[in-house]
Nucleic acid binder design. Sequence first.
DNA 1: TTGAATGCAAATCGTTTGCATCTCA
DNA 2: TGAGATGCAAACGATTTGCATTCAA
Lengths: 133, 133
Amino acid sequence: MEHKIKLKNTPVRNAILKIFKEASVPLDAEMVFKKISKIKDLKGTNEATIYRNLTTLEQGKVLRKIDLRKDSIHFELADLHHHHIVCTSCEKVEDFENKEIEKILSKVTKKSEKFTKVTDHSLELFGVCRECA
Amino acid sequence: MEHKIKLKNTPVRNAILKIFKEASVPLDAEMVFKKISKIKDLKGTNEATIYRNLTTLEQGKVLRKIDLRKDSIHFELADLHHHHIVCTSCEKVEDFENKEIEKILSKVTKKSEKFTKVTDHSLELFGVCRECA
DNA sequence: TTGAATGCAAATCGTTTGCATCTCA
DNA sequence: TGAGATGCAAACGATTTGCATTCAA
Protein backbone atom coordinates (compact mmCIF):
# COMPACT_ATOMS: atom_id res chain seq x y z
CA MET A 1 0.00 0.00 0.00
CA GLU A 2 2.74 2.42 -1.05
CA HIS A 3 1.87 6.09 -1.23
CA LYS A 4 3.79 8.41 -3.48
CA ILE A 5 3.03 11.33 -1.21
CA LYS A 6 3.49 11.79 2.46
CA LEU A 7 0.00 11.21 3.69
CA LYS A 8 -1.18 9.51 6.79
CA ASN A 9 -1.84 5.86 6.49
CA THR A 10 -5.45 5.68 7.61
CA PRO A 11 -7.90 2.80 7.29
CA VAL A 12 -10.27 4.75 5.06
CA ARG A 13 -7.53 5.94 2.74
CA ASN A 14 -6.03 2.49 2.43
CA ALA A 15 -9.41 1.05 1.67
CA ILE A 16 -10.01 3.65 -1.00
CA LEU A 17 -6.72 2.83 -2.67
CA LYS A 18 -7.52 -0.85 -2.53
CA ILE A 19 -10.89 -0.20 -4.11
CA PHE A 20 -9.29 1.67 -6.99
CA LYS A 21 -6.71 -1.03 -7.50
CA GLU A 22 -9.43 -3.60 -7.82
CA ALA A 23 -11.74 -1.48 -9.92
CA SER A 24 -11.97 -2.10 -13.63
CA VAL A 25 -13.70 1.17 -14.35
CA PRO A 26 -13.42 4.78 -13.16
CA LEU A 27 -15.29 5.42 -9.93
CA ASP A 28 -17.03 8.47 -8.55
CA ALA A 29 -17.37 9.51 -4.91
CA GLU A 30 -20.70 7.84 -4.45
CA MET A 31 -19.49 4.51 -5.82
CA VAL A 32 -16.47 4.60 -3.53
CA PHE A 33 -18.72 5.55 -0.63
CA LYS A 34 -20.97 2.57 -1.23
CA LYS A 35 -18.05 0.18 -1.45
CA ILE A 36 -16.51 1.60 1.71
CA SER A 37 -19.82 1.28 3.49
CA LYS A 38 -19.85 -2.43 2.79
CA ILE A 39 -16.58 -2.95 4.63
CA LYS A 40 -17.34 -4.11 8.14
CA ASP A 41 -14.94 -1.86 10.03
CA LEU A 42 -15.61 1.21 7.89
CA LYS A 43 -19.37 1.13 7.77
CA GLY A 44 -19.85 4.48 9.47
CA THR A 45 -17.49 6.44 7.22
CA ASN A 46 -18.80 9.84 6.29
CA GLU A 47 -19.21 10.75 2.66
CA ALA A 48 -17.33 14.00 3.19
CA THR A 49 -14.32 11.93 4.15
CA ILE A 50 -14.51 10.18 0.82
CA TYR A 51 -14.61 13.49 -1.03
CA ARG A 52 -11.68 14.81 0.98
CA ASN A 53 -9.66 11.71 0.28
CA LEU A 54 -10.36 11.78 -3.41
CA THR A 55 -9.27 15.40 -3.55
CA THR A 56 -6.14 14.74 -1.54
CA LEU A 57 -5.19 11.71 -3.58
CA GLU A 58 -5.74 13.59 -6.79
CA GLN A 59 -3.56 16.46 -5.63
CA GLY A 60 -0.97 13.92 -4.65
CA LYS A 61 -1.08 12.53 -8.22
CA VAL A 62 -2.24 9.16 -6.99
CA LEU A 63 -5.59 9.51 -8.67
CA ARG A 64 -6.59 11.25 -11.88
CA LYS A 65 -9.89 12.95 -12.57
CA ILE A 66 -11.89 11.71 -15.51
CA ASP A 67 -14.91 13.22 -17.17
CA LEU A 68 -17.29 10.65 -18.57
CA ARG A 69 -20.00 13.21 -19.29
CA LYS A 70 -22.02 11.76 -16.45
CA ASP A 71 -23.31 13.79 -13.52
CA SER A 72 -20.35 13.26 -11.25
CA ILE A 73 -16.58 13.36 -11.44
CA HIS A 74 -14.86 10.02 -11.83
CA PHE A 75 -11.37 9.00 -10.80
CA GLU A 76 -8.91 6.28 -11.63
CA LEU A 77 -5.39 5.42 -10.54
CA ALA A 78 -3.01 7.92 -12.08
CA ASP A 79 -0.38 5.38 -13.03
CA LEU A 80 -2.66 3.34 -15.24
CA HIS A 81 -2.95 5.65 -18.17
CA HIS A 82 -5.44 4.34 -20.59
CA HIS A 83 -8.42 5.88 -22.29
CA HIS A 84 -12.09 5.07 -22.37
CA ILE A 85 -15.01 4.45 -24.62
CA VAL A 86 -18.12 5.49 -22.79
CA CYS A 87 -21.69 4.50 -23.55
CA THR A 88 -23.87 7.57 -23.52
CA SER A 89 -26.99 5.63 -22.69
CA CYS A 90 -25.81 3.24 -19.99
CA GLU A 91 -22.94 3.00 -17.51
CA LYS A 92 -20.67 0.87 -19.65
CA VAL A 93 -17.03 1.87 -20.04
CA GLU A 94 -14.41 0.10 -22.13
CA ASP A 95 -10.72 0.82 -21.75
CA PHE A 96 -8.24 1.10 -24.54
CA GLU A 97 -4.62 1.95 -24.94
CA ASN A 98 -2.81 3.30 -27.95
CA LYS A 99 0.85 4.12 -28.09
CA GLU A 100 0.59 6.03 -31.35
CA ILE A 101 -1.69 8.58 -29.84
CA GLU A 102 0.71 9.19 -27.00
CA LYS A 103 3.51 9.83 -29.47
CA ILE A 104 1.50 12.28 -31.50
CA LEU A 105 0.42 14.05 -28.37
CA SER A 106 3.96 14.67 -27.28
CA LYS A 107 4.68 16.21 -30.68
CA VAL A 108 1.63 18.42 -30.48
CA THR A 109 2.68 19.48 -27.03
CA LYS A 110 6.02 20.73 -28.27
CA LYS A 111 4.39 22.88 -30.92
CA SER A 112 2.31 24.80 -28.44
CA GLU A 113 2.89 28.53 -28.28
CA LYS A 114 1.34 29.41 -24.99
CA PHE A 115 2.29 26.36 -23.00
CA THR A 116 5.66 25.36 -21.70
CA LYS A 117 4.67 22.01 -20.33
CA VAL A 118 1.74 19.71 -20.71
CA THR A 119 1.44 17.41 -17.76
CA ASP A 120 -1.63 15.37 -18.43
CA HIS A 121 -4.35 14.73 -20.93
CA SER A 122 -7.75 13.21 -21.23
CA LEU A 123 -9.08 11.26 -24.16
CA GLU A 124 -12.52 9.80 -24.03
CA LEU A 125 -14.64 8.38 -26.81
CA PHE A 126 -18.40 8.46 -26.64
CA GLY A 127 -20.83 6.19 -28.36
CA VAL A 128 -23.50 3.58 -27.95
CA CYS A 129 -22.67 0.04 -26.87
CA ARG A 130 -24.09 -3.10 -28.50
CA GLU A 131 -26.61 -3.64 -25.76
CA CYS A 132 -27.99 -0.13 -25.99
CA ALA A 133 -27.89 0.13 -29.77
CA MET B 1 -28.52 31.77 -38.56
CA GLU B 2 -29.18 28.25 -39.86
CA HIS B 3 -30.20 25.63 -37.36
CA LYS B 4 -29.57 21.97 -38.02
CA ILE B 5 -32.51 21.06 -35.86
CA LYS B 6 -36.06 22.21 -35.90
CA LEU B 7 -36.09 24.63 -33.04
CA LYS B 8 -37.87 27.88 -32.65
CA ASN B 9 -36.01 30.87 -33.85
CA THR B 10 -36.01 32.99 -30.72
CA PRO B 11 -33.95 36.09 -29.96
CA VAL B 12 -32.16 34.48 -27.04
CA ARG B 13 -31.29 31.35 -28.96
CA ASN B 14 -30.04 33.26 -31.94
CA ALA B 15 -27.93 35.43 -29.72
CA ILE B 16 -26.46 32.38 -28.03
CA LEU B 17 -25.52 30.88 -31.38
CA LYS B 18 -23.96 34.16 -32.46
CA ILE B 19 -21.96 34.29 -29.25
CA PHE B 20 -20.60 30.82 -29.85
CA LYS B 21 -19.73 31.63 -33.44
CA GLU B 22 -17.73 34.61 -32.31
CA ALA B 23 -16.13 32.91 -29.34
CA SER B 24 -12.55 31.76 -29.59
CA VAL B 25 -12.77 29.57 -26.51
CA PRO B 26 -15.31 27.21 -24.99
CA LEU B 27 -17.95 28.96 -22.91
CA ASP B 28 -19.92 27.95 -19.86
CA ALA B 29 -23.45 28.97 -18.94
CA GLU B 30 -22.35 31.88 -16.82
CA MET B 31 -20.14 33.33 -19.52
CA VAL B 32 -22.96 33.11 -22.02
CA PHE B 33 -25.31 34.63 -19.50
CA LYS B 34 -23.03 37.62 -18.98
CA LYS B 35 -22.64 38.18 -22.70
CA ILE B 36 -26.38 37.92 -23.24
CA SER B 37 -26.96 40.37 -20.42
CA LYS B 38 -24.89 42.97 -22.22
CA ILE B 39 -27.13 42.87 -25.26
CA LYS B 40 -29.57 45.74 -25.04
CA ASP B 41 -32.74 43.88 -25.98
CA LEU B 42 -31.89 40.77 -23.98
CA LYS B 43 -30.79 42.31 -20.74
CA GLY B 44 -33.50 40.69 -18.63
CA THR B 45 -32.91 37.14 -19.84
CA ASN B 46 -33.08 34.56 -17.08
CA GLU B 47 -30.14 32.30 -16.43
CA ALA B 48 -32.38 29.23 -16.47
CA THR B 49 -33.19 30.07 -20.07
CA ILE B 50 -29.49 29.96 -20.89
CA TYR B 51 -29.15 26.54 -19.28
CA ARG B 52 -32.18 25.27 -21.12
CA ASN B 53 -30.88 26.53 -24.42
CA LEU B 54 -27.47 25.02 -23.91
CA THR B 55 -29.06 21.68 -23.13
CA THR B 56 -31.38 21.88 -26.10
CA LEU B 57 -28.62 22.89 -28.47
CA GLU B 58 -26.39 20.12 -27.21
CA GLN B 59 -29.10 17.54 -27.69
CA GLY B 60 -29.60 18.93 -31.16
CA LYS B 61 -25.89 18.38 -31.86
CA VAL B 62 -25.34 22.08 -32.42
CA LEU B 63 -23.14 22.37 -29.37
CA ARG B 64 -20.74 19.93 -27.79
CA LYS B 65 -19.97 19.62 -24.10
CA ILE B 66 -16.36 20.02 -23.08
CA ASP B 67 -14.74 19.32 -19.75
CA LEU B 68 -11.89 21.66 -18.97
CA ARG B 69 -11.59 20.45 -15.39
CA LYS B 70 -12.99 23.73 -14.21
CA ASP B 71 -16.04 24.04 -12.00
CA SER B 72 -18.59 24.31 -14.76
CA ILE B 73 -19.40 22.58 -18.01
CA HIS B 74 -18.19 24.30 -21.14
CA PHE B 75 -19.59 24.17 -24.65
CA GLU B 76 -18.41 24.90 -28.15
CA LEU B 77 -19.93 24.63 -31.59
CA ALA B 78 -20.15 20.97 -32.54
CA ASP B 79 -19.00 21.46 -36.11
CA LEU B 80 -15.66 22.97 -35.19
CA HIS B 81 -13.93 19.91 -33.93
CA HIS B 82 -10.62 20.82 -32.48
CA HIS B 83 -8.98 19.99 -29.20
CA HIS B 84 -7.66 22.09 -26.34
CA ILE B 85 -4.68 22.69 -24.18
CA VAL B 86 -5.92 24.01 -20.87
CA CYS B 87 -3.94 25.87 -18.24
CA THR B 88 -4.64 24.36 -14.86
CA SER B 89 -3.82 27.54 -13.02
CA CYS B 90 -5.54 30.24 -15.10
CA GLU B 91 -8.35 30.40 -17.61
CA LYS B 92 -6.20 30.12 -20.72
CA VAL B 93 -7.20 27.69 -23.44
CA GLU B 94 -5.31 27.05 -26.67
CA ASP B 95 -6.87 25.17 -29.55
CA PHE B 96 -5.15 22.64 -31.72
CA GLU B 97 -6.06 20.31 -34.51
CA ASN B 98 -4.40 17.13 -35.55
CA LYS B 99 -5.54 14.93 -38.40
CA GLU B 100 -3.35 12.01 -37.40
CA ILE B 101 -5.10 11.64 -34.11
CA GLU B 102 -8.45 11.55 -35.83
CA LYS B 103 -7.25 8.76 -38.10
CA ILE B 104 -5.92 6.69 -35.24
CA LEU B 105 -9.12 7.21 -33.33
CA SER B 106 -11.23 5.84 -36.12
CA LYS B 107 -9.04 2.73 -36.17
CA VAL B 108 -9.35 2.31 -32.42
CA THR B 109 -13.07 2.69 -32.72
CA LYS B 110 -13.32 -0.21 -35.13
CA LYS B 111 -11.46 -2.50 -32.78
CA SER B 112 -13.89 -2.02 -29.94
CA GLU B 113 -15.69 -5.09 -28.71
CA LYS B 114 -18.53 -3.60 -26.80
CA PHE B 115 -19.31 -0.63 -29.00
CA THR B 116 -20.90 -0.58 -32.39
CA LYS B 117 -20.47 3.07 -33.06
CA VAL B 118 -18.47 5.88 -31.56
CA THR B 119 -20.06 9.19 -32.28
CA ASP B 120 -17.86 11.71 -30.57
CA HIS B 121 -14.72 12.10 -28.57
CA SER B 122 -12.99 14.51 -26.29
CA LEU B 123 -9.30 15.21 -26.15
CA GLU B 124 -7.96 17.80 -23.79
CA LEU B 125 -4.41 18.43 -22.70
CA PHE B 126 -3.63 19.98 -19.35
CA GLY B 127 -0.58 21.93 -18.36
CA VAL B 128 0.78 25.25 -17.26
CA CYS B 129 1.01 28.20 -19.62
CA ARG B 130 4.05 30.47 -19.95
CA GLU B 131 2.51 33.19 -17.87
CA CYS B 132 1.65 30.90 -15.00
CA ALA B 133 4.85 28.85 -15.11
C1' DT C 1 -53.94 27.44 -32.17
C1' DT C 2 -50.42 25.07 -29.93
C1' DG C 3 -46.25 23.26 -28.76
C1' DA C 4 -42.06 25.39 -27.62
C1' DA C 5 -39.69 29.05 -25.00
C1' DT C 6 -39.27 32.04 -21.06
C1' DG C 7 -39.40 34.11 -16.26
C1' DC C 8 -39.43 33.33 -11.59
C1' DA C 9 -38.74 30.94 -7.55
C1' DA C 10 -37.97 26.83 -5.30
C1' DA C 11 -35.77 22.58 -5.34
C1' DT C 12 -31.89 19.31 -6.38
C1' DC C 13 -27.72 17.35 -5.90
C1' DG C 14 -22.92 16.79 -6.09
C1' DT C 15 -19.43 18.75 -3.49
C1' DT C 16 -17.20 21.74 0.03
C1' DT C 17 -16.35 23.69 4.50
C1' DG C 18 -16.26 25.20 9.56
C1' DC C 19 -15.56 23.39 13.75
C1' DA C 20 -14.81 20.08 17.38
C1' DT C 21 -12.66 15.75 18.05
C1' DC C 22 -9.61 12.08 17.14
C1' DT C 23 -5.54 9.62 15.29
C1' DC C 24 -1.29 8.61 13.09
C1' DA C 25 3.66 9.51 13.09
C1' DT D 1 2.72 16.82 20.74
C1' DG D 2 1.11 18.46 16.29
C1' DA D 3 -0.33 18.15 11.69
C1' DG D 4 -3.36 15.66 9.25
C1' DA D 5 -7.89 12.93 9.23
C1' DT D 6 -12.69 12.36 10.38
C1' DG D 7 -17.70 13.20 11.70
C1' DC D 8 -21.45 16.07 11.52
C1' DA D 9 -24.22 19.52 9.93
C1' DA D 10 -24.64 23.53 7.44
C1' DA D 11 -23.39 25.94 3.38
C1' DC D 12 -22.47 26.30 -1.56
C1' DG D 13 -22.89 26.67 -6.28
C1' DA D 14 -23.97 24.93 -10.58
C1' DT D 15 -27.85 23.17 -12.74
C1' DT D 16 -32.76 21.68 -12.97
C1' DT D 17 -37.65 21.90 -12.60
C1' DG D 18 -42.74 23.14 -11.75
C1' DC D 19 -45.90 26.31 -13.06
C1' DA D 20 -47.96 30.25 -15.13
C1' DT D 21 -47.27 33.20 -19.08
C1' DT D 22 -45.67 34.51 -23.62
C1' DC D 23 -44.28 33.73 -28.25
C1' DA D 24 -43.02 31.74 -32.72
C1' DA D 25 -44.84 29.12 -36.55
